[in-house]
């Protein structure tokens, strides 16, 4: 079913690319920036669990491994972004790039070069996490800081640089927390049913901790920008807190933080499988909304059928691939 959704989504978004290329590029970038959190967030959780151990990781391992294994999907998925580079990014447009203060960093050759380096590192780490025995911890300890750094710079390139004036030092940490939360939510949806009773409560606590961490970082970025009120930073929020996007902003506070937080602190809910799965689904949907809210205002685009098709196509293909790979020897060997 996930494959069907994904294939239909990709087909419809392909149609959208012909009818309205700009909508497609921004919609695809939003979908990609959400989906990338799945394999990379799963990978980081796998590496963390190698170092810390714990029941939560044992319960999640098959789903995290399946999520990590979908990373090669990034290779075809990044193509529309590379083709649409001048549409998406001011720094990729020859007429605007020379006027930017940070064009020494934001330029097409450097972007492609470092992007390739990130990709090689991620694929290597994913292969390490999938093929080596969980007892092997050394590479995990070295890989985690590298993953954190490369993810930070990759997400700065992909989404923060849409507004070349916006400059937030917590951005990578914030998006990283969001990515891990997204990957965890997607793993909890099936794990809430398959995990042992005690482990379900552990998953609830972990989900709670990540919701709080994400909300904390997000609020700190917002508060500092609000307090300082500098045009280049506040403008980023201005675009995302006016018109219809104000609703998306409020919805995130309510459904990406307040409601899941209020539910997850109740011990009874932490043990209820159905409730846990429902909360995880809600968090995953909110992550998609968050991706639109981050990316689309940069292109002055609302959420339309093309954007919806891109999101469904990307996440559907990701889910379909994860489900298919989940049954293979690749994922099953170290479960």
């Amino acid at each position: 079913m996930a494959w069907a959704l994904g294939v239909v989504g990709v087909a419809v978004s392909g149609l959208g690319a012909f009818l309205h290329a700009r909508a497609f590029y921004f919609g695809w970038l939003a979908a990609l920036s959400v989906w990338i959190g799945w394999p990379l967030g799963s990978l980081s959780l796998l590496l963390i669990h190698r170092l810390t151990g714990g029941r939560w990781g044992d319960a999640l391992r098959p789903y995290l491994r399946a999520g990590t294994a979908t990373l090669p999907l990034l290779l075809p998925a990044i193509l529309p972004v590379l083709i649409g580079l001048p549409v998406l990014y001011a720094w990729a447009r020859p007429e605007q790039a020379p006027h930017l203060a940070n064009s020494f960093y934001l330029n097409v050759p450097f972007f492609l070069g470092r992007g390739a380096a990130y990709l090689i590192l991620w694929l290597g780490l994913a292969a390490f996490a999938l093929f080596t025995s969980p007892a092997n911890t050394r590479v995990a300890a070295i890989g985690l800081p590298l993953l954190a750094l490369t993810f930070t710079f990759a997400i700065i390139d992909l989404t923060m640089s849409l507004d070349p004036a916006f400059n937030s030092s917590v951005y990578g940490m914030l998006q990283g927390a969001g990515a891990v939360l997204f990957a965890l939510s997607l793993a909890v949806v099936p794990a809430a049913w398959t995990a042992k009773r005690d482990a379900v409560a552990d998953l609830g606590k972990l989900l709670l901790a990540l919701v709080v961490l994400w909300a904390y970082l997000d609020f700190m970025q917002f508060l500092i920008v609000w307090e300082s009120n500098l045009s280049h930073d506040a403008g980023w929020y201005q675009a995302r807190m006016s018109g219809g996007w104000a609703w998306a902003f409020t919805a995130q506070a309510a459904f990406h933080f307040a409601l899941p937080f209020g539910l997850l602190i109740v011990p009874g809910i932490q043990r209820n499988r159905a409730a846990m799965a429902a909360i995880a689904v809600l968090l995953a949907f909110m992550a998609a909304l968050r991706g639109w809210w981050t990316v689309l205002p940069a292109g002055q685009r609302p959420v339309g059928w093309i954007e919806l098709a891109c999101m469904c196509g990307m996440l559907g293909c990701g889910a379909g691939l994860a489900a298919s790979l989940g049954r293979t020897q690749l994922v099953q060997r170290h479960v």
């Binding site: 937030s168 030092s169 917590v170 951005y171 940490m173 904390y216 970082l217 700190m220 970025q221 508060l223 500092i224 920008v225 307090e227 300082s228 500098l230």
Partner: peptide
């Protein structure tokens, strides 16, 4: 974090940085 915000809330050079709390 509030200690970090003491700095980040100001517009002194080097202080206006959103990562200061963490």
């Amino acid at each position: 974090s509030v200690v970090g915000l003491d700095f980040a809330g100001g517009e002194t050079t080097g202080w206006h940085s959103t990562q200061f709390p963490p």
